[in-house]
């Protein structure tokens, strides 16, 4: 079962994502801030991170950079109530950018794609090193 870490400072969002993604068959853990986020990832070993951009006291885009510097291939989906952050060039390091909504169809689809991509790359590496 894939493990997803949801990082958001709004309790209602954490609750919503946890409920909906658990129903989809994922194991969901949550964090309310970016404090020691990389250490948390180290300890919990999630397969995917859903990361809010405007976290109290933290910038999600800086956290994304921190994650990427340690975890080259860990899928990260950025979530924000605002579309405007998508134009920040730093978002290029994320697997996907989703505008928050009570309808989680797009988020679920992006989670599925990111984990599918992870599976295919891992399979490629296992079978033949991914080369010719």
């Amino acid at each position: 079962m894939y493990k997803i870490l949801v990082v958001d400072d709004e309790e209602s969002i954490r609750f919503l994502y946890q409920e909906e993604l658990t129903d989809e068959g994922y194991e969901v853990i949550t964090a309310e801030s970016g404090y020691r986020l990389v250490e948390r990832i180290e300890e919990e070993g999630p397969d995917l991170v859903i990361l809010d951009i405007k976290l109290a006291g933290y910038d999600g885009l800086d956290l994304l950079q921190e994650i990427r510097s340690r975890y080259y291939d860990l899928p990260v989906i950025l979530c924000s109530a605002y579309e405007v952050f998508k134009r920040d060039i730093k978002t290029i390091a994320a697997d996907a950018y989703v505008v928050k909504s009570s309808d989680l169809t797009q988020l679920k689809e992006m989670v599925r794609r990111a984990l599918e991509g992870r599976t295919s790359l891992e399979r490629g590496s296992d079978e033949d090193g991914g080369g010719v």
Binding site: R68, Y72, A93, G117, S120, G124
Partner: peptide, 13 residues
Amino acid sequence: YWRKIRWSKPTAV
């Protein structure tokens, strides 16, 4: 190689 690929992934920045 590419037959195994379905969706893209970002690269580190």
